[in-house]
Design a protein around this nucleic acid. Structure first.
Lengths: 192, 192
DNA sequence: AAGGGGTGTTACTTGTCAGTAACATCATGG
DNA sequence: CCATGATGTTACTGACAAGTAACACCCCTT
């Protein structure tokens, strides 16, 4: 594995587990089994490494949408369910530190930080995906439902970090399932 | 205003606005119009100052419950509504950086940090208050409803930091209102 | 074999930060 | 008026962090 990749892997593990500001570039270089010089040959600065770290996560999250579309072709409701279950399962795992992007947004409030554009774009895109599926699945108030799903997931992912895994976050899966079941849909729902 | 109080005030403003790790004790001392020595005469360490900062916020939040109880005596539903509206209004303000306790939990993942006990206790207590009111207000599934309210609020407060104030967070007030309106309640709802 | 690009190594600069020591100042109350 | 305790001031230590310079190395290609 080339150094650049090793560095990004190390950054992902350390930034996520300990927080961005708590991790030094030396820590990352060491974990990546290389050194600071090589790191700086691949990344201009720590801030840009952070941005790249978040970008790589955002890209992976985007790939999930395509995967779900392939797994449940022409069945937006099933895609939505699978998405929700997937995140809920991740949240339920102990040791989970929630959404790396959201955490980064809290750790890096400076408006001009290069990471902020990545975060904002990805979160907005994520919500649009959900809204698109809600609409395609024939729900009557797709935007409202998308907001609700989005906020519940974000809330679950942040609250496990303040109240632990036994708390509300653990039940978000069940809540979302029943939300999807009980939300009203237009008549002519497209068949699979 | 005595120095200890000025220091706590300064800590609140700076920790909240910039993040805990981004603020030095010198910054706080300067903003408090005093100096580092005096700060360390009142607080053993930065970590304990952080814990005290969060404790002071938690105490204030607790006072809100009593205030709401006084404002709407024997009317848990009204208390619940007022609580929800209050937080939703805060969230809607631009410049709001969400819940200081939740942010701190993300910034300080070390399990033995003195702040963590404060955070965990306060968040748990907060959820219990909501659940208590849901139950007293006669909702049929008070625990489930409390979880939903809790997660929506947490989600809103975190998401304004990643997608901005135009996004779902801004609509959490309306969502919660309709949630309270549409949730089923037991028959003999107690009168005011 | 020669060259070159990517990599490793060491050491350095510069800055910041938590925390402390020693001493000066100042107000207050006896 | 003086003693005491709280506060201000300056300077310091020790640690760590971001980023850079200079040079050695190693592998791959020509």
């Amino acid at each position: 594995m080339p150094p650049r990749e090793r560095i990004l892997q190390a950054a992902r593990a350390l930034f996520y587990a300990r927080g961005i500001r708590a991790v030094s570039v030396d820590d990352i270089a060491e974990t990546a089994q290389t050194n600071k010089m090589t790191l700086y040959r691949h990344f201009e600065s720590k801030d840009l490494l952070v941005a790249e770290y978040l970008r790589s996560l955002a890209r992976e999250a985007d790939a999930i949408w395509e995967e779900l579309a392939r797994a449940h072709p022409n069945d937006p409701l099933a895609q939505l369910r699978a998405f929700v279950e997937r995140i809920a399962a991740t949240i339920a795992q102990s040791g989970d530190r929630g959404c790396a992007l959201a955490n980064a947004a809290i750790e890096l409030p400076e408006k001009d930080h290069p990471a902020r554009a990545v975060i904002e774009e990805h979160k907005t895109h994520q919500r649009e995906q959900v809204a698109g599926l809600c609409s395609a699945a024939g729900f009557e108030e797709p935007e409202r439902l998308a907001d609700e799903i989005f906020l519940l997931l974000e809330g679950a992912r942040v609250s496990i970090q303040s109240v632990g895994h036994d708390a509300p976050g653990a039940r978000v899966g069940a809540m979302l399932c029943s939300l999807l079941r009980s939300s009203p849909r237009r008549e002519r729902a497209q068949s699979a």
